[in-house]
Design a binder for these strands. Structure first.
Lengths: 191, 191
DNA sequence: GTCTATACAGTGATAGAC
DNA sequence: GTCTATCACTGTATAGAC
């Protein structure tokens, strides 16, 4: 009996979950095989470079997804579309992290010992997010310094909320923080 | 040649650094021996329960330190001392995390696969912090709901800033966020 | 209290059968 | 493309010498 998973891409979401649940060092090949439903042979067929290639591929996929779903709408909007891009960001991000039940793999890797190995991808993820958000805020009328500070506050606030909600085992904590951050941006815009 | 480290307590800070640098799973006994300068035999003499007991002891020590240095000043102050307690918190926390060069072990554990194992200690750390801060804000004149929301915002903001500064390899990012959070509390108090 | 020697399960990784 | 068998190595943990 042999299942056939045609695409390597199909394994990536499963792999991501294993890394999210156990971190890079904790994601042993045994756990990876359970999580993906594949044997070692199959895994190494898709990722000859081993664990490092698996993690890199997962990070790439996440980065691409955020570029398309979050950064692009933030960058493209003009006028009223700026607010639309911001709303889109909070909506999509809330859904992505499953309202606080799922954590940020980039955040996990940023804090872990694997930071150095994937430093470029990790830094890129957060910097691009903050740049896209700051650009939208500037087009919304803020000066560059304020926009950058707000972007840092929001992206950092999201990461912190994920840590807190995970620590307290209270997903609602993430949801509320997300609302507060969104409202803070609106209030500051109105002021 | 045999060194004598009289107290088990002397090893705890060294152990903490190893866990901080590599996470729980990544902190192998080999790395622990290098980091502490002790052989396996000595390590197991101090911590017969192995790695789990080591991590638990480290978490206990950190928790105790925060109770004494952070939560207590927040709780004890009255009147002008409330602001003093808040200032003390930001000052001590900034110093503790070495202005963004050191990360929060509780945050690392909260995001890692080891969360379940140390769930009680992790939750306790963050909840006590938020409760002490909220209590101080209430004595400063806020209603309970606002105080709780602000406490969550500040503690979460600190964790997020640690993630971001680590990800971008920019400790100043943490310092600035800390200042901003402190100023936000002041402004809200004045309003 | 510290070290060395050792046990033995689990690690990442490879080769080859199907 | 998937599996099983197997590799050398590192993992945690223990026992006993000094």
């Amino acid at each position: 009996m042999s299942r056939t998973i045609a695409e390597r891409a199909d394994v990536l979401p499963l792999l991501a979950e294993v890394f999210r649940a156990h971190g890079y060092e904790g994601a042993s090949l045994a756990r990876i095989c359970v999580g993906t439903g594949l044997g070692k042979g199959s895994i190494y067929h898709f990722f000859p470079g081993g664990k490092e290639e698996m993690a890199a591929a997962v990070l790439d996929e996440i980065s691409l997804w955020f570029h398309e779903q979050v950064y692009a709408p933030l960058r493209d909007g003009e006028g009223d579309d700026v607010q639309h891009g911001l709303d889109q960001m909070f909506r999509v991000v809330g859904r992505y992290f499953q309202s606080g039940r799922k954590i940020c793999l980039l955040g996990v890797f940023a804090l872990g010992g694997e930071r150095d190995r994937f430093a470029v991808a990790i830094k890129h993820y957060f910097v691009e997010w903050m740049k896209a958000l700051a650009a939208a805020l500037e087009r919304g009328g803020r000066d560059a310094a304020t926009a950058a500070a707000l972007a840092q506050q929001v992206v950092g606030g999201i990461q912190g909320a994920l840590v807190l909600s995970r620590a307290c085992d209270k997903p609602a904590l993430f949801t509320h923080s997300l609302q507060r951050l969104r409202d803070d941006l609106r209030d500051a815009a109105g002021a």
